[in-house]
């Protein structure tokens, strides 16, 4: 034989998926939501995304190279995904230095402290987001006016999110029927013409991204569907019991960060369960906690907290919820 051949154990062929491809797939799936955001919020959306992605990638590179002293792996795109997701969770008029702090916390505390990609128990982007939310509540809860503030960045006129309007209103005793006049119509809500964080406004664009990811098998449908079902059921029951003081389930589904959270944040690989059964438990938990925070809690929106809380249950779920072992329960039919 005149040249070497490879001898290795089977299998001898491999699937096309690589971590890099999956991560870029997530970024492609976020494109529609990003474009909608650029349409409604203009330059703010561009600036926030750029700063967030650049700082996340930079911090990951620096930490890997100088603190962990390993070969930087920023090219796998996971830091970029964290960056885009962090940006999606921020209002587009937030000062640049807050984004940089958020990126540092997301990558440094949320991801690298635990050993990097795959070892982090909490979704890094959400760690960054919640950190900013508790640290800079004022900046994190003033959302720019869509369309009219396209050309402004931090000086944009602001307003409250529909969920915020409802929460405030109900706390003040204003009935739902009157509050409904203060929020955009459901079509606007669905398309994304409302106050909100950059990436959460358009349920339509996010769902399109979600369908793309499911079709490309980047994620499975279990987590988003279980979250949607739980939220719909829970808010539906509350609404049926007392429609005067509760928003209807459709409103809950298409407002706030629910779709963004359910499709992009809760499905984060490292921080979600491994089995379909586990995913159902996880999704249901997120749904219940989200609605509980929205309806009974202090904050108008709760999906970030809900995901982080359920993230902490994932190791437990993975330990006790096992896949259906072949031949374990013999069901002979």
């Amino acid at each position: 034989m005149d040249k070497l051949i490879t001898v290795s154990p089977s299998p001898h062929v491999y699937g096309d998926d690589t971590v890099k491809k999956l991560m870029y797939g997530v970024i492609y799936a976020l494109l529609p939501a990003f474009l909608v955001s650029v349409y409604f919020f203009g330059i703010g959306a561009l600036i926030v995304t750029a700063i967030s992605v650049v700082s996340c990638v930079m911090f990951e590179y620096l930490i890997q190279k100088y603190m962990m002293k390993t070969e930087p792996s920023v090219s796998d795109g996971s830091a970029a995904v964290t960056g885009v997701l962090l940006a999606m969770n921020l209002p587009t008029n937030i000062p640049w230095w807050i984004i940089v702090i958020g990126a540092l916390v997301a990558i440094g505390v949320g991801k690298m402290s635990f050993g990097g990609l795959g070892n982090n128990p909490f979704n890094p982007a959400l760690v960054g987001r919640v950190f900013l939310f508790i640290s800079f509540p004022v900046q994190m809860t003033s959302w720019p006016e869509p369309i009219v503030s396209r050309l402004q960045y931090t000086d944009a006129a602001t307003g409250a999110t529909p969920l915020g309007v409802i929460k405030e209103g109900l706390a003040a005793g204003v009935p739902m029927s009157r509050l409904a006049e203060q929020i955009p119509g459901y079509l606007d809500l669905f398309i994304g013409h409302l106050h909100g964080s950059m990436g959460e406004i358009s349920a339509l664009a996010l769902l399109a991204g979600g369908i793309y990811m499911i079709a490309r098998k980047i994620i499975t449908w279990h987590i988003p569907v279980s979250i949607f079902c739980t939220v719909f059921l829970f808010t539906g029951i509350l609404w049926l019991i007392n429609p005067y003081d509760n928003a209807d389930p459709v409103f809950h589904l298409i407002t706030g960060g629910l779709v963004l959270g359910a499709v992009f944040m809760a499905t984060d690989y490292a921080t979600s369960p491994m089995t379909p059964k586990g995913m159902w438990i996880y999704g249901t938990g997120i749904g219940v906690i989200t609605v509980a925070i929205r309806v009974y809690g202090a904050y108008p929106e709760g999906i970030s907290f809900a995901i982080l809380i359920m993230n902490s249950f994932v190791p437990l779920i993975n330990k006790y919820v096992k896949p259906n072992r072949f031949g374990e329960e013999v069901k002979n039919g």
Partner: peptide, 22 residues
């Protein structure tokens, strides 16, 4: 073979295993 990188815990192996293993 593909270069080996960190496990990202994507669960694709769990859903691919015909014996229901992890």
């Amino acid at each position: 073979r593909k270069p080996v990188v960190n496990c990202v815990r994507c669960a694709k192996c769990v859903s691919a295993c015909p014996m229901g293993l992890e």
